[in-house]
């Protein structure tokens, strides 16, 4: 898929990028994740999918559901365990509130077909403020990339709803980056992720099931 040529702003002060490259290097995880029914179905989402349809929207919403479950669980555990104070605490609390509303909306959209809450092991990511902020940046960048990656696969009606969520994820990403003293918007165009990359990214943060 071609996009207009936009060069990345060339600036040495630009903090870390999303850890996409790192994620891509860890191929083995996918094989294991694919044995889990919900995730196995998600991995069947192609990069260049069939024309948008209600059925395809539902598959994509399952991916989004997994993402929102992960975010809610991540912020809940971090608020309990990471010893967050000041700006980081305010951020985590606001983000949790938003992600809960996203999760509720996606669950409602999926109705009885919504997948159950998966299990997580966030490990050190929720044990200190410093680790939390790094993981939060990675998770929010992954959320933005995951939604953006599905935009052309969604029907227009569902795209309109997804667009109301993705920019809030982008605000979260920039917010926590700014708190951490990193460049809040490192790329002129946010780089999308495929469904596979998204699932892999969530596993990197702590999705287990």
């Amino acid at each position: 898929m071609r996009q207009p040529e936009v060069k990345r702003v060339d600036d040495p002060a630009m903090g870390i990028r999303s850890s996409r490259r790192v994620l891509l290097a860890r191929g083995g995880v996918l094989g294991a994740l694919a044995t889990i029914p919900l995730i196995g179905r998600l991995l069947q989402l192609g990069d260049a999918s069939a024309s948008p349809s209600k059925a395809q929207d539902s598959k994509i919403l399952q991916l989004v559901l997994l993402l929102e479950y992960t975010q809610v669980a991540f912020y809940e555990e971090a608020l309990r365990q990471a010893g967050l104070t000041g700006d980081l605490h305010d951020f985590a609390q606001a983000a949790l509130e938003h992600e809960k509303q996203h999760l509720a909306a996606i669950r409602k959209a999926l109705g009885t077909t919504a997948g159950a809450k998966p299990s997580f092991d966030f490990g050190q990511n929720v044990k200190s403020a410093r680790a939390f902020s790094e993981a939060a940046i990675q998770l929010e960048d992954t959320a933005v990339a995951s939604y953006n990656g599905q935009a052309t696969n969604l029907t227009k009606g569902t795209l309109a709803v997804a667009a109301e969520i993705v920019s809030v994820e982008a605000r979260h990403a920039a917010w926590v980056r700014a708190i951490a003293g990193q460049v809040a918007a490192p790329d002129p165009v946010d780089v999308p992720m495929t469904a596979k990359q998204a699932v892999q990214g969530l596993h990197e943060i702590g999705l287990r099931t």
């Binding site: 071609r2 993705v166 920019s167 700014a178 918007a185």
Partner: peptide, 24 residues
């Protein structure tokens, strides 16, 4: 589709910008 893909990628960058400016 290529235009849509570019537009959504720019859309989220503008959202990052507004969050950044709000923080400042």
């Amino acid at each position: 589709n290529p235009v849509l893909a570019a537009a959504v990628g720019i859309h989220s960058v503008e959202a990052r910008h507004t969050a950044w400016m709000r923080q400042l």
